[in-house]
Amino acid sequence: MSLLAVRDLAVARGGLRAVEGVSFNLEAGGALVLRGPNGVGKTTLLRTLAGLQPLVAGVIEAAPDAIAYAGHSDGLKPALTAAENLRFWSEIFGGHDIAGALEAMNLRDLAERPAHALSAGQKRRLGLARLMVTGRPVWLLDEPTVSLDRDSVALFAGMLRAHLGRGGAAVIATHIELGLPEAEILELGPYRATRTRRESRPAGFNEVFG
């Protein structure tokens, strides 16, 4: 069963196409790792897949309410405790159990601590635990391992593998080896937009003049 199908996708940043002609198909249990130099458009691609940005060309097919996005920021409120933060997102996304998520990212001892008292790595773990309480199958992860130590990366890889095992899927922009041998790797460099490949519809005003 295909959870996320992308055909000939082009995305733009600042009115200029970043990457174009991207196609992939993500099955249940599948993981896709996005690679490419800084500025190639990994974040733009993920935000477009999440529906936060309009796409320029191509098709994105995904079940409604299938996608959970985790960007550079974790969406945590410093004044609330870790458990309160997590419970809020759980209620917004339909009331999934937070105990399992706290357990998976080893946060149980920190549950009652206010988020402002957490370290950067602990905040990140909390932000990733949020993915579990969304109950959504397709995770879009933008550099998920930033500020995580080696043990935490392993913890996260374990959580991710469990998610894939439950029939989930993930698109991950990362440079770190997560230890997911089954993950496909999509090198974005070759899809970098060029002037010659432009279609009739420009990404923005900046492309109107040929």
Partner: peptide, 16 residues
């Protein structure tokens, strides 16, 4: 505040 800490991105992708 929600914009700065990324909550708004997440709320925009939420069912609400």
């Amino acid at each position: 505040l929600d914009f700065e800490d990324g909550s708004l991105d997440l709320l925009a992708t939420a069912p609400l």
